[in-house]
Design a protein around this nucleic acid. Structure first.
Length: 270
DNA sequence: CTTTAAACCTGCTGGC
DNA sequence: TGCCAGCAGGTTTAAA
């Protein structure tokens, strides 16, 4: 149930648990993947890394596990041999000597030859990961002005994974609010200062979310309110219809944009 | 080409 | 308590 920041934090935890370790066993619920169970036993997990919201788990036998959690998939980490009964359906289990990583509920799971991953129909079309530390404001500004994107409305563009992978629905509202822009604006019509602000917020909002635990939740949709540190990530407009804008006090509006909800301050955003 | 709508995957919540 | 409708932070497909 995640956007880029939540996926990346999950990847960090998984990597810490099993990267560099040798698999004792592998298990798949998908009949089409069960032929890999024997081939993965004894393999070393080389890396676990996200690209946008997709997760790539690479093994030292030339194969990579592709998984996408969509709205509902969730990874858990347990001590080897354990299976916490969650009520959810277990889809993948990778077990090392010490730890096991378990994927529940996800349906978009596949094994790919590592050297053929570039041909994956979803991965191959993704834009740069918005949380890639080498991505800078100049690159994002240039991408906004790319002819493929410059004429699009920001509302649609910010959810398009071909533009920036890892963006998602709460980030869209928060980025547009931080940049003080309305979703119907288009990159090519922005003033230079607006374009710069948008590029800056496209990087800083997701990074802030990632750095401060984002909206990782303990069972509730509004768990962003539970974060404790002073600089904790909070929704300023998302999910706050009718509440006063933190900048000007105007009531925050909820709109439909595409088929997704979008929140904005009609006074701050232009 | 862009935008919109519906479908799909699965889980959770709220209402009756 | 139990069932069902509706909704969700995602993506694909088809239609407009």
């Amino acid at each position: 149930m995640p956007e880029g920041p939540e996926i990346r934090r999950a990847a960090d935890r998984l990597a810490e648990a099993v990267v560099g370790e040798r698999l004792v066993s592998a298990w798949f619920a998908f009949p089409g993947l069960q032929r890999f169970e024997k081939r993965l036993a004894g393999c070393v997990v080389e890396s676990i890394a996200p690209h946008g919201k997709a997760l790539l788990t690479r093994f030292d036998n030339g194969w990579t596990l592709y998984s996408h959690n969509q709205l509902y998939g969730v990874w858990r980490i347990t001590d080897a041999g354990q299976r916490s009964d969650t009520g959810r359906s277990l889809r993948v289990a990778l077990e090392t000597e010490r730890k096991a990583i378990l994927l529940y509920s996800a349906s978009d799971v596949a094994m790919w030859r590592t050297d053929e991953l570039h041909a994956h129909p979803f991965l191959s079309r993704l834009g740069p990961d918005v949380l890639d530390s080498t991505l800078d404001e100049a690159a994002v500004a240039a991408r906004l002005l790319d002819p493929r994107f410059a004429g699009r409305s920001l509302g649609g563009l910010l959810l398009d994974q071909r533009f920036l992978a890892g963006m998602g629905n709460y980030l869209r509202s928060e980025v547009l609010f931080a940049a003080r822009l309305l979703p119907q604006r288009r990159p090519r019509d922005l003033q230079a200062s607006e374009l710069a602000a948008l590029a800056r917020e496209l990087l800083s909002v997701p990074r802030h979310s990632y750095a401060t635990r984002g909206i990782e939740h303990a069972g509730g949709m509004r768990a962003d309110y539970l974060t404790d540190t002073p600089d904790a990530f909070r929704f300023l407009v998302f999910d706050r219809e009718g509440e006063p804008c933190p900048a000007c006090g105007t009531r925050i509006q909820r709109q439909q944009n595409g088929s997704r909800r979008l929140y904005l301050c009609p006074s701050c955003q232009r």
